[in-house]
Structures are given as C-alpha cells and as structure tokens.
Design a binder for these strands. Structure first.
Lengths: 152, 152
DNA sequence: ATATTGTGGTTGCATTTGCAATTATAGGCC
DNA sequence: GGCCTATAATTGCAAATGCAACCACAATAT
C-alpha cells in the first residue's frame, strides 16, 4: 500500500474500507443466526421510530438511503414475510404508507442483540467515548451537507 | 429520529448513513462523467500500487474487500474493456495474475480528478486535520481487528 | 372544467451480486 | 508414485440492484 499523503484522503480510504469489512461481518452474523439482512433491520428500525410505526414510501426511502424502486422491492419482500403492511395514504391518493406489524416489531427486537454484538466487537470496542463523539459530530456535518446537495 | 443513548452507537449509525449517502453522490458523479463505477477505480488503484502493477486474484479480492467470485466477474468486465490482462501464474499452476494495462493506468488517471472532487466537497471539506487523523487512526484499529477475525 | 406539469409509487429489463458447486492444481503423507 | 485434503479461480443459478419507462393522482394555470 502506498502512503496517501493527505490525512483527509487517508481517512476517506479507511472509512470506505472499514465499512466494507464490517458490513461483511455483520451480514454473515445475521445469516448465521438465520436472520434477514441488515437492510431489513434498517427498515424495521426506521418504522419503529416513526409516528405510529408508519411512514410514506418516499420518506422511508430517504431515511434508509435507498432508491425509490429499491424500497418498493424491499417492502414487497418484507410484506410477504408479514413484517410490514402497506395501505393507501388517506390524504394523498397517490401515496402509500408502510406500517410496521407486530411481527415486524418482534423481528427487530430479535435481530438487535445480534447486530449489537457485532457493532460492539467490531466497532465500539475500538473507540473511546471522545473519539465516538468526534466521529458523530464530524459525520453529522457530512450528512447534513450531503443532504443539502439532494435538491440539486 | 430517536436519540441513540450510547455515543458509540450513534457514531456507528452516522458512519453507515454517511457512507451510503456519499457513495450515491460519487457513483452519480462518475456516471455523469461517463466513467465506470467506483469498484473499477478501486481495482485500478490497487493494481497500480502493487509490484509491477499485478496481483493474484485472491490478493486483489482481499485488498478490494470483495468476494472471490465477485472479483472474477469484475476483472472479466475490465479485461473486456482492455483495462487489465489476466495470465497464468508462473509459480502456481492454479493461480491467475491480474495485471494493469496502459489503458487501465490511463483510465485511473482520468477518473481520479472526478473522484477527488467528490471526496473533497463531500468529505474532506468538513474535517479539520486533527479530525482526519483521529478518524484515520481509529478506523485503522478497526480494520486491523476486523482483518484478524478473517481467520475464524 | 381542462389542460399541463409535477410527484408518488411501481414495474420491466439489464446488470450486478452472493452462494454453492465445480474444475484444476498444490502439498503433505504413506 | 498414489492418495487425500486444501486452496485458486471460475461458473451456474437465484436474488438483489439501478435505471428508465410507466400509471395514477395532485397541483397549478388558464
């Protein structure tokens, strides 16, 4: 490996590499526990924290950072598995609301310990709380700025 | 959004979200410039920094953090595009070495300014050098530990 | 009211990915 | 040498993804 001169570029490179490596471990852990992939967890978690456990498709897509069509297919599968339910939006005839079911809630609760364990051993374990706070605030800035570019 | 109590878990959440958002922007930038996806850049860059611009398939897979079969397909496409060339490994009859071509080198050079611009505006711009260093070292630890888990 | 333009969501199709075989060779052991 | 197991890389097939249409309805203008 050649040294990247700029510390920010090195940070970027490690950021990308770490992400890829950790996701691999996490998906493997879910798979070994006969649980669905991380993307499902994300959707369940987002819905669980939304008002009444429901969200419009587009909002769900934005929060989960996936494309519209992708969230359609994702919820197709999850609906088939009984984890969410779709219904027409009462205030917008075009819209659809995606709602968490009790089964979905239960699955999220079941997935969390597996996920948490991976986060702890792969990630949290290697950070002191000062570092964690710094990473949070720095990435918070990055996310905000990236969000603003959405309009373009 | 509900507040995640543990600062490390919040850091994790933002880490994952930021990654997804930034990759979206970066892929879009490559696409708009009629350039191939980031995965190709990664392979080209890895080869360019390897001895003689060549690497065994398995090593390439490890460095690029992709599965074996995936790297096979990736190099299939890149070979078809004339960016890399495969040949039998002289010291291991099973092996294949993947070598960067002049065309591949040229494409990497052409992609870099586009990539760099995205890294700068989306990522580097929001970090001071102290933060960048901290992120580098923290993620360096995380990557090392994750690598050690590979053996299991 | 009617036309026009915009937005929400889904679908079709091509590309890409992941996983489980499969093939070919290496390396140790007898 | 012959046998057994392990490793390198590829392939087939199913699943997931991205993109460009597409349909239905909303919102605005006239």
């Amino acid at each position: 490996m050649v040294a990247t001169p700029d510390p920010r570029q090195r940070a970027w490179a490690r950021f990308v590499t770490a992400q890829a490596m950790l996701l691999e471990h996490i998906e493997a852990a879910f798979s070994e526990a006969d649980l669905p992939p991380l993307a499902w967890y994300d959707v369940l978690w987002i819905l669980e924290n939304a008002e009444h456990g429901r969200l419009r498709m587009a909002d769900l897509a934005r929060k989960a950072v996936v494309s519209r069509s992708n969230v359609t297919r994702l919820t197709d599968r999850m609906e088939k598995a009984g984890l969410v339910a779709r219904s027409d939006c009462p205030i917008d005839g075009r819209g659809t609301v995606c709602e968490l079911t009790a089964k979905g809630r239960a699955l999220r609760a079941k997935m969390w310990p597996v996920y948490r364990k991976q986060i702890d051993t792969l990630f949290s374990k290697h950070l002191d709380s000062r570092e964690a706070d710094l990473i949070s605030t720095a990435f918070g800035r990055i996310i905000d700025s990236s969000n603003q570019r959405k309009s373009s």
